[in-house]
Each structure stands twice: as structure tokens, then as C-alpha cells.
């Protein structure tokens, strides 16, 4: 039942937005077709503008992951993660999550199928993936699109929040599912 509601919401959200906004605009005397194309024109520029930033981030991440450095870092930090009750298997995900959404999704899929979706590892991985974001990617792309280079405290604040999200994912799963 709840799943149906949630699935229904996911399915309906975009069609409803696509229906509601143009109709609302029409009744507010907006020339909907012309205004739509006027806005859409900007789409190409924005997408092209972010290519250099995407390439830079993808390059660094692919080197770090494919070289095995990611696994090595997880191994070094395993004493700390054991202390907060995070299974070592989750660690690559905790590092990958701020860096690459598709990479993190790959790790989650792998963990869920290997250990089972209803195992502690599977649950923590799911909650962590759902409650954190690809921080570096978002910062690089967003600031890149407006050519801001001095990002001040944005990265430290975002990374602290990520850490809080990662730790609370582990803690909440232990409280609820242990």
C-alpha cells in the first residue's frame, strides 16, 4: 500500500508538473509555447558550460578508483569505522558517495546483491545512499556554471554535513534494525 503511494508519487510527480505549470501559465495570460522555447534556449549553453568540470572530476575519480587507492584508503581507516559500528564493507561507499553518484550507486547495487537487501550491510548502504549527495560533483558543477573559483566555506560545511549523514545512517540502522 505505502509502496504503491510512494511509487505513484514518483511516477506522477513529473507529469503533474508538466501539466500544472503550463495550464497555470495559460490562465495567467502567459504565451506558454513561446515562453517555453525562450527558456529552453538556455539549456544548451548550461550543458556545454559544465563539460570541463565534469571531465576534471571524472578524471580524478577514475584514477583514484581504478588504481586501487580507494580500497587502500578504506583499509587504513578501518579502525575508525569499526569504532562507530560501520561494517568495513560499507567504507568504499562512504568515500565514493561525495565523489560520484553513478560510482556510489554501483557500489550500493553490489553490496545489496552480495549481502542481501535486508542484511545490516544492505540496509546501512541503502540509507547512506539515500540520505547523502555527490558533494564534489555538485560543488564543481554548480560553482563551475557561474565561474566561481573561490568557494570559501562551502566544501568544509558540505563535507561535515556528509560525515553527519554517514554516521547517522549507521547509528539509525543499528537503533532500528538491531
Amino acid at each position: 500500500m505505502f509502496q504503491n503511494i510512494v511509487n505513484g508519487l514518483s511516477v506522477l510527480a513529473i507529469p503533474l508538473i508538466l501539466l500544472f505549470i503550463p495550464i497555470y501559465g495559460y490562465f495567467k495570460k502567459v504565451k506558454v509555447y513561446e515562453v517555453f522555447t525562450e527558456g529552453a534556449k538556455e539549456g544548451f549553453e548550461v550543458a556545454i558550460k559544465i563539460i570541463p568540470f565534469l571531465v576534471a572530476i571524472f578524471l580524478a575519480i577514475s584514477v583514484f578508483r581504478s588504481s586501487g587507492a580507494m580500497d587502500f584508503l578504506a583499509w587504513i581507516l578501518s579502525p575508525i569505522t569499526n569504532a562507530i559500528g560501520m561494517p568495513g564493507e560499507i567504507l568504499p561507499l562512504a568515500f565514493m558517495r561525495p565523489l560520484s553518484g553513478s560510482g556510489a550507486l554501483g557500489i550500493v547495487s553490489n553490496l545489496v546483491t552480495t549481502y542481501g537487501p535486508d542484511s545490516m550491510i544492505g540496509r546501512i548502504a541503502s540509507v547512506m545512499m539515500g540520505s547523502t549527495e555527490t558533494t564534489f560533483y555538485i560543488l564543481a558543477v554548480y560553482f563551475g556554471s557561474v565561474s566561481v573559483r573561490k568557494t570559501r566555506h562551502a566544501l568544509p560545511a558540505a563535507l561535515t554535513a556528509d560525515l553527519a549523514g554517514i554516521i547517522s545512517s549507521v547509528v539509525i540502522c543499528h537503533i532500528l534494525f538491531d
Binding site: 508538473i17 508538466l18 505549470i21 503550463p22 497555470y24 501559465g25 495567467k28 502567459v30 506558454v32 515562453v35 517555453f36 522555447t37 525562450e38 527558456g39 529552453a40 534556449k41 538556455e42 539549456g43 544548451f44 548550461v46 550543458a47 556545454i48 559544465i50 563539460i51 565534469l54
Partner: peptide
Amino acid sequence: LAFGLVGIMALWLGIMKIAEKS
């Protein structure tokens, strides 16, 4: 990925423009 984004960006910026103007 960036080129795949062109269409979606255009779509959403178009809809946003209507939401903005209305």
C-alpha cells in the same frame, strides 16, 4: 553525460520560464 543533459535542461528551463512568467 553533458550532452545527454542538454535535452533535459532545455525541457526544465522551458517549464521554469513559464512558472516564472506566470
